[in-house]
Simulated scan of single mutants.
Amino acid sequence: MEHLVQHAVTTIRERFWEPLTLDELARSAMVSKYYFLRLFTRVTGVTPGRFLCAVRLQEAKRLLLSTSLTVADISVRVGYSSTGSFTRRFTEWVGLSPTQYRKLSLAVPGDKPEPAPPEAAPADNPPPPAARTTGSVTGVLRSTGTVLSPVYVGVFDSNMLQGTPVSWTNACAPGRFTLPRIAAGTWYVHAVAQGRHPDSPAGTEPTPLTATLGPVRVKGETAHRLDITLSPQDWTRPPILSALMDLEPQPMAA
């Protein structure tokens, strides 16, 4: 039944600016909306509404960096009737406001605005005791493709790669990584890099290689060890939204 979900994903990507509803997507798949909701969520990991929102915000990111359209105009183009609602959702899911995100294209390379949650404070400037975190995640990175950039690895509160991580680092694949100072709770570990699939023809443009693990439950002063394998992103995964992943890549470590 995955073909029903693939058809719905194609519809979302081709008509994201329209007021698509769960009822309409289920009707096009010729199944009940309750069955369609369960099937779509099982295959993609998110609800149709969250997938649609992610596609809209990905297009908004592209327009902010490649056009001079106002935020209000962009919000309408991607299917929002309220600029305020668009701005709030964009800020929550991307980690920067639309105006801040647009500055990414204007900043000097290496000087781009960077999400910096309190948990990511340097070791010589630890958070206050009330906000001190307790656990860590370590592991090994591998890849099914050729990695052409540093790998961003972060701990997020969603199985979608959105918002600001509570802890993040750069690493290499193959290689090891450590994510320190993670508060007790349930998290998802995301990794992303630019790369190329082994079967891709020579000269093919790099594409995202991604991996998601979770839920990972951090409790007490524990160190969780994970093996993460990056692979090309397929049609089932919603777009990458976190602004952290749009920072200017640094040179690959030796």
Score class of each variant (00 low, 15 high):
97 S>W: 12
134 T>I: 11
17 W>K: 12
3 H>E: 08
18 E>S: 09
20 L>K: 05
169 T>W: 12
148 L>P: 04
202 A>E: 14
163 G>P: 02
95 G>V: 01
30 M>H: 14
172 C>Y: 13
178 T>L: 13
85 S>Y: 09
220 G>I: 09
97 S>H: 06
16 F>P: 00
57 L>F: 06
5 V>S: 09
88 R>W: 14
103 K>Y: 11
43 V>G: 01
158 S>H: 08
24 E>T: 10
198 P>S: 10
113 P>S: 03
143 S>R: 03
89 R>W: 00
222 T>W: 13
161 L>W: 03
127 P>V: 14
9 V>Y: 03
16 F>I: 07
244 L>V: 02
33 K>N: 02
48 P>A: 03
17 W>G: 08
22 L>K: 04
238 P>Y: 08
130 A>F: 07
60 A>I: 06
21 T>H: 09
5 V>Y: 00
22 L>W: 04
80 Y>M: 06
186 T>G: 02
189 V>C: 10
204 T>Q: 14
141 L>P: 11
130 A>R: 05
196 R>G: 03
168 W>Q: 05
132 R>K: 11
207 T>Y: 01
169 T>G: 01
2 E>H: 13
114 E>W: 13
136 S>A: 13
112 K>R: 15
191 A>F: 07
52 L>Y: 01
87 T>E: 09
39 L>C: 01
232 P>Y: 05
102 R>W: 08
217 R>M: 12
164 T>Q: 05
30 M>Q: 13
180 P>D: 13
134 T>K: 05
37 L>M: 08
130 A>T: 10
6 Q>S: 11
73 D>I: 01
128 P>H: 05
49 G>W: 02
191 A>C: 02
72 A>E: 09
188 Y>N: 09
44 T>W: 12
226 L>P: 02
239 P>N: 08
57 L>C: 05
203 G>D: 11
233 Q>F: 01
199 D>H: 15
132 R>E: 15
110 G>H: 07
6 Q>W: 15
206 P>M: 08
40 F>T: 01
173 A>C: 08
81 S>H: 15
26 A>G: 13
78 V>S: 00
100 Q>D: 13
193 A>C: 02
105 S>E: 07
86 F>I: 08
52 L>W: 05
20 L>P: 00
216 V>D: 06
9 V>K: 12
119 E>L: 12
142 R>T: 06
216 V>M: 13
84 G>R: 15
118 P>C: 15
98 P>Q: 03
13 R>G: 05
121 A>L: 15
93 W>G: 01
12 I>E: 02
77 R>K: 01
112 K>S: 00
225 R>T: 08
10 T>L: 14
195 G>W: 10
17 W>Y: 09
70 T>K: 07
149 S>A: 14
128 P>R: 14
181 R>I: 00
245 M>K: 12
245 M>N: 14
199 D>I: 09
87 T>G: 07
25 L>D: 04
13 R>S: 01
154 G>F: 15
163 G>K: 02
178 T>R: 13
158 S>Y: 06
3 H>Q: 14
27 R>P: 02
19 P>Q: 08
46 V>K: 07
74 I>C: 12
196 R>M: 10
154 G>R: 08
159 N>R: 14
249 P>E: 05
224 H>W: 12
249 P>F: 08
192 V>S: 04
118 P>H: 10
232 P>T: 03
13 R>F: 04
200 S>L: 03
171 A>M: 09
92 E>Y: 15
115 P>W: 11
178 T>M: 11
199 D>N: 14
168 W>G: 01
135 G>L: 07
